[in-house]
Design a protein around this nucleic acid. Structure first.
Lengths: 135, 135
DNA sequence: TTCCTTGCAAATCGTTTGCATAATG
DNA sequence: CATTATGCAAACGATTTGCAAGGAA
């Protein structure tokens, strides 16, 4: 399974790196397609999974039923706006202690944790329900 | 939208209350069906959603692509075993402070958070990869 | 030339929904 | 009787996969 180069994989990764939000496979498809008209959705999914496996990007499952992808693989947390569904990066102090708290008295090995915060984002608090739902 | 009684809803809820694990809709279906042969999957989904809305049970999205349900609606955290996919309750000290930590400096309102811990559960650490994957 | 990758379409999977009928209050 | 709930099957949306053809090493 030696990885070979692929123009579409490069573009998909480049697209993700150029966004601070966390696009879904479909958004990636719609956008990369603009410069690569014959790109197929299957290829987008295959490459997103591949890039996730190599650790170049990470897959976010925030509970809305759709996978989001993030080119920023450094440890950080996300906020999900329940109004517009946007996924926003949070800059916050480290909370890794919760893992120790969870592990205390637990019969097993805790390897990691997933946390996302939800509520109303800044724009939605100012603007009256725009119903934007990202692009 | 006045709720009416239904024998199947009662059984679905009773089944959930009798389990300490966190069954998926399909597991609920398979089991309740034993005593109620003509139960349909659609009814199971409809009632699980209904019970979730009334707050009698809660829906767990642990990131494996399938919804799990929990009759224990008291605030507590979950552990997901990456070996057997089991979802286990954690008894741990309160970590609500993470919400304040996340909210500090964030432009928006944080209403809640979802956290689950993952790793290897006690049974899987003892038993060599049984590949059980629950029922 | 070998083997990975693509495009396309069909297939899966979990979940939702429309509709006529059955059950509840 | 007025409605809500059910069973069944078809519809859905997201993601995966089989296959023949194209591209990289």
């Amino acid at each position: 399974m030696a990885l070979k180069h692929s123009r579409q994989r490069d573009m998909i990764k480049a697209f993700l790196m150029g966004r601070k939000d966390h696009p879904t496979a479909d958004v990636v498809y719609m956008n990369v397609r603009k410069e690569f008209p014959n790109l197929s959705l299957g290829t987008v999914y295959r490459n997103l999974t591949l890039l996730t496996e190599t650790g170049e990007i990470s897959r976010l499952r925030v509970g809305d039923g759709v996978d989001h992808f993030d080119a920023d693989t450094s440890p950080h947390y996300h906020f999900v706006c329940t109004e517009c569904d946007r996924v926003i990066d949070l800059e916050m102090d480290n909370i890794d202690t919760i893992q120790d708290i969870a592990g205390a008295g637990f019969d097993g090995r805790i390897a990691g944790h997933v946390t996302y915060f939800y509520g109303t984002c800044g724009s939605c608090m100012k603007a009256p329900q725009p119903g934007q739902k990202s692009e």
